[in-house]
Amino acid sequence: MLVELDPSTKKTLRKALRNRNIRVGGIIVATFVLMGLLAPFIAPYDPTKGNLRDSLLPPCSKYPFGTDFAGRDILSRVIWGARTSLIVSTVSVFIAVIAGVLVGGLSAYVGGWIDEVVTRIVDVMLSFPDILLALFVAAIVGPGLENVIVAVALYNFPQFVRIMRGSALQAKEMEFVEAARAIGESNASIFARYLLPNSLAPIVVHATLRTAASILTAAGLSFLGLGVQPPIPEWGQMMSDARTYLVTAPHVWIFPGIALFITVLGFNLLGDGLNDVLNPKMEV
């Protein structure tokens, strides 16, 4: 059966579409996602194959963004780089959200010493600066796409545990949770049907913001040589490669830099906008 959207969902949607942060951020994010998905079709050249004769060409009609030291088309590498960032950030945030929601939610619902232990571990993890935790993991597991995903997921994980725990603790105190016990719901059912759905709004907001941070961290790891390895195109790594030509061929780092900047900005705008719409208590 087709159930129509209830009025409050419609209202939230309308509010979301009127929010400027969501509109601007949404367009940027959509462009980024499309770029990543459609990279093989829209990139003019193979991002890994270069023509050494065309090394370090400035932007021209043949190569709109110029070429790097190996004569690879920077435009194509920026487009493919979007795909790498998209994979790293979404997969790692997705893993962190699932793990964080389960651990944080259960910890809050079960309470007692389990909750104590989880909270302490999370506090320790959170006391490290983001990049340091990721660096630490990357240094242990070594470079490579999968390992970057693991490192970034791990540094996102405690954040989601904390947020989920907080919002589940709040939901747990709601009278409808007691009412659910009163009709005879089991613990598992209370968790899945009552606590989870009422704790997700802050998770959605935070996932968007963490995607931005994850893109940045992944790029940082690659910049330091601990991330995605050549020849896979990645913005941080492209900028790292450009260090030698910082002044002589600035286009080599400017374009991936701009791409990184706009993408991170886009996710942040979207996250802030979602926060305005989904957490109406912040409104004055």
Binding site: E175, A180, R193, Y194, N198
Partner: peptide
């Protein structure tokens, strides 16, 4: 069974 004072807060929104 039980019926609460505030029906809004006793139902999963």
């Amino acid at each position: 069974q039980i019926v609460y004072q505030d029906p809004m807060s006793s139902m999963n929104p």
